[in-house]
Simulated assay, not measured.
Amino acid sequence: MTGPHLAYTYAIARYTDGLAQVVAALTGVAASRVHLVQPTRGRDPVAAVSPVPAEDFDETALRRHLEELAWLEEVARSHHGVIEAIAAHTTVLPLRLATVHLDDGRVRAVLDARQETFLDRLTQLADRLEWGVKLYLDAPATPPPPPPADLGPGRAYLHHRRAEQDLRQDSHDAARTAAERIDAAARLHAVDRVRHRVQQGELAPGPGTNVTNDAYLVPVERAEAFRADVMRSTDGLPGIRVDVTGPWAPYSFAAPHEEEDTAP
């Protein structure tokens, strides 16, 4: 790579003897080869890094690129591809998209300064992966019944409004019940949860309204039971759809978190 470049950092990982070979085969952001940076003392933890052109990733350029959806999608695809490949081999702490440092020396300085913190978190995440659980509420299948024919216009309007409110309340109650059932089922297996903001607009593809958007940290050996119990948890509740995705590297659990109260 010609010209000034920066060190794009994908993740912090637990070192293994075969990790360097795995990483050496990876192509990351800006079609650059990925390599490992180790701390000054010891081999653990390591950072997965690749050089990227400063003209695209310095502070000024990033502000401009963050408005370019196609550019962001390409970077995100490469970023997550590197992380998932490493996560298939060892425990990983994913970093935020477009985490850049001046050079490998600065990356090493971060590893040195936070070595024990990184190692503690990696120990907590060992043999655990992230699963996403989204709850959707479908629109009522039928409109409220028409008002009785003997009502005048004013009373008929009020009757219709009350019927609409009853439908909305029924939907709200169903969503709350579903959310409680899902979380109870998930917590039989998960060791942690992060509650994200619900998705709206283009971020919420498919039918229905997204009412919860949670991430659960689940031990690898409990994955199948987790998925099965969550999917069964809303049986018998009409108008409810549950979307379970994963497993993923523990993106939502790489750092301590504070949950946002977004329950329905």
Rank of each mutant, 00 (worst) to 15 (best):
Q199V: 13
A54P: 11
I83F: 00
L36T: 03
L93N: 06
L125I: 06
R43C: 07
Y251S: 05
A174P: 05
P247Q: 08
M1C: 13
A48D: 01
E59R: 15
P45N: 02
S233H: 04
A70Q: 14
P256W: 00
A7Q: 01
T142F: 10
R227N: 11
V198A: 01
T16E: 06
A263W: 13
D229Q: 07
P94D: 08
Q200A: 14
V49T: 01
A20I: 04
R77K: 12
I12E: 02
R161W: 11
T177I: 04
T2G: 14
V92K: 04
R108P: 07
R193Y: 03
L69G: 09
E164S: 09
Q38H: 11
T16F: 02
E202M: 12
L95T: 15
A174M: 09
G28D: 06
P264C: 00
W131Y: 12
K134M: 09
P147A: 06
G246I: 09
D192W: 00
P94E: 05
R64A: 12
A254Y: 05
H80R: 15
H35R: 12
E68S: 08
P207Y: 04
D127M: 04
T262N: 13
D112M: 08
E116D: 15
A70W: 14
T245N: 12
A7S: 11
V230I: 07
P144Q: 02
E221G: 09
S50A: 13
M1I: 13
V191D: 10
R121G: 01
Y10V: 07
A87Y: 10
T16S: 06
L62W: 10
P143M: 01
V82M: 04
H172I: 10
E116P: 08
L137G: 05
G81I: 02
R232G: 13
P264S: 00
Q165S: 13
Q200H: 14
K134Y: 10
T91L: 00
G28N: 06
R155T: 06
T9W: 01
H257E: 01
P94W: 08
A126W: 09
L125R: 04
E55C: 12
A215F: 11
E116S: 08
A204S: 05
R195V: 12
P219C: 09
L6G: 02
L72S: 10
V194R: 15
L26A: 02
A70M: 12
P247W: 05
E224H: 14
M1N: 13
G18N: 08
S171K: 11
I86K: 09
I240D: 04
D17T: 14
E74T: 15
K134S: 10
E224K: 13
Y251C: 05
D235K: 13
E67L: 14
A47K: 03
V52W: 02
H65V: 11
D170I: 12
A25I: 00
A85T: 07
A223K: 03
A61H: 03
P4V: 07
A24S: 15
T212V: 05
A139T: 07
H172V: 09
Q115R: 14
G154C: 05
L151P: 03
G105A: 11
L69R: 15
